[in-house]
Design a protein around this nucleic acid. Structure first.
Length: 112
DNA sequence: CTATTGACGACAT
DNA sequence: CATGTCGCCAATA
């Protein structure tokens, strides 16, 4: 019989192992904290794949479930977002993450 | 198989 | 600080 989660399953299964790993890591970033692309890269065992991490996120199929807006650049800059950096900034602001001149100000809550 | 494409990073200037 | 260059990497054409 076909599970009622078949659609989600299909979507999930269509992802590569690499992509699944990436999304899985990001899913764990809790509210009020942020991580860098580099951090995620290291977490999935590809320490130099930070660029590829971004490529995964730009097509994040679970925009609601996976808080990819919490991933920023290692130099403290905001970084991109599929719905536009502006949106990303607003969401983060709501979550208590502050930026000034496109630079993160609170370095306490960042995972590097 | 090769080439291109980026939500990147380190480093030089 | 700001900007440019070069290296990196998985996906995709």
């Amino acid at each position: 019989m076909i599970s009622k989660f078949q659609n989600k399953q299909d979507k999930f299964n269509s992802l590569t192992v690499f992509e699944k790993k990436v999304l899985k890591v990001i899913k764990k970033i809790s509210n009020g904290r942020v991580a860098t692309y580099k951090f995620v890269a290291k977490a999935v065992g590809r320490p130099r794949a930070s660029r590829a991490i971004g490529n995964v996120l730009k097509k994040n199929p679970y925009l609601i479930k996976i808080p990819c807006h919490r991933v920023i650049r290692s130099n403290g800059q905001l970084g991109g977002y599929s719905l536009g950096s502006k949106k990303k900034l607003l969401i983060l602001k709501k979550e208590g993450i502050k930026f000034k001149a496109n630079k993160l100000t609170n370095h306490k809550k960042i995972l590097v």
